[in-house]
């Protein structure tokens, strides 16, 4: 990578940061408890809209994992999410009615909050339907992972998105508030992912899974990216470029080994395909606030009308992280 390309990436990073700085004006603090944050706390950042039904389990899951404080942007919910979150003692909440799309799908807002509150903290950026798992997550808290990453001088940790789905029609089993979504969406695709390297940012581009298989078989290049780097030892000069798929400086994207070895990595179990999905797809299609003119949702809607079942006979039933490790979707690396 030449000096010129490096310089251009630097400019790009500055631009994203400036943009985040400007977008901060769109955020109104609703309940700011950030004074409770201690220097060693692990922070979770998220943007959401009308996710009340998911919130109780989401918060419980991440509290059990060892998240100390949640910093959440509420994008104009009207289902009571805002009030629910404001009551939580470990949640700081900002609200905005501004366009999700024009904040680059929440990235600008979160970049701002992270540079303001995340400096020198381990920060986890996830959507309310993403559940982070990592090697030994059943026996070691998140702090153990972060301490180990610190000791190994690793600044960012990869967790690929794994789409989970139920057997039978997506709307077949209703999701109750507080329920573990993976009691319903138990299945995943184990071995149909494609990888390519993004030369400019140095990250891997991963696609595949049930969405590519069912919705994007004819347009694979448009199928959603599954590579994610949600856990970062944040510094205020960092910036996410596109969702949590990639960051700048680009060294943070080098979460993979190129000389044959395996670095440690985790996964984000994606509980998108519940009965709430159809309604969400409908709403998002009308709001047109999603990536690339919501073509994802259009494809889903078309796909779901003709084939409502993502399950196939080679679907794998989720057991635990060790299973994903053996299947080769994540790795322990040299953490033992």
């Amino acid at each position: 990578m030449g000096l010129w390309a490096t310089y251009r990436l630097r400019l790009a990073r500055k631009r994203w940061r400036a943009r985040a700085f400007l977008k901060r004006r769109e955020l109104r603090p609703f309940s700011n408890r950030t004074s409770l944050i201690r220097p060693t706390d692990i922070l979770l950042f998220s943007t959401m809209r009308n996710e009340k039904v998911r919130l109780p389990y989401f918060l419980r899951y991440y509290r059990d994992l060892g998240i100390n404080h949640f910093l959440i942007v509420d994008n104009d919910s009207d289902d009571g999410s805002r009030e629910y979150l404001a009551e939580q003692p470990d949640v700081s909440l900002w609200t905005t009615k501004a366009s999700y799309k024009r904040s680059r799908f929440g990235v600008d807002w979160l970049n701002w909050l992270q540079s303001r509150y995340g400096h020198n903290h381990w920060t986890l950026v996830v959507d309310p339907d993403e559940f982070f798992i990592y090697p030994f997550c059943d026996t070691r808290p998140l702090k153990a992972l972060c301490d180990w990453l610190d000791a190994s001088s690793i600044k960012s940790f990869s967790a690929m998105l794994v789409d989970m789905y139920p057997k039978g029609p997506i709307g077949g089993q209703p999701y109750r508030e507080g329920q573990d979504p993976f009691e319903i969406a138990q299945w995943f695709d184990s071995g149909n992912y494609t990888l390519a390297k993004n030369k400019r940012f140095g990250n891997l581009w991963i696609q595949g899974g049930p969405r590519a298989r069912v919705f994007f078989a004819d347009a694979p290049e448009r199928s959603p990216a599954l590579n994610k780097i949600p856990l970062v030892r944040w510094r205020r000069e960092y910036a996410y470029v596109s969702s949590t798929h990639m960051l700048l400086p680009r060294g943070l994207n080098l979460v993979y080994d190129e000389w044959g070895g395996e670095k440690a990595s985790g996964a984000l179990l994606h509980a998108k395909f519940l009965d709430t999905f159809a309604a969400k797809a409908e709403e998002e299609l009308q709001r047109r606030q999603h990536y690339a003119n919501s073509h994802e949702y259009k494809a889903y809607k078309a796909g779901l009308n003709e084939s409502p079942d993502l399950w196939c006979k080679w679907s794998e039933k989720y057991i635990n992280w060790r299973q994903l490790e053996i299947l080769g979707l994540m790795s322990k690396g040299n953490w033992a």
């Binding site: 690929m160 080994d257 080769g328 994540m330 790795s331 690396g333």
Partner: peptide, 17 residues
């Protein structure tokens, strides 16, 4: 696992040159 990895596996944290 960290230095040699699993041969023939391409994944998020193993993408050999």
């Amino acid at each position: 696992r960290r230095t040699k990895g699993r041969g023939g596996l391409y994944m998020q944290s193993r993408f050999p040159n």
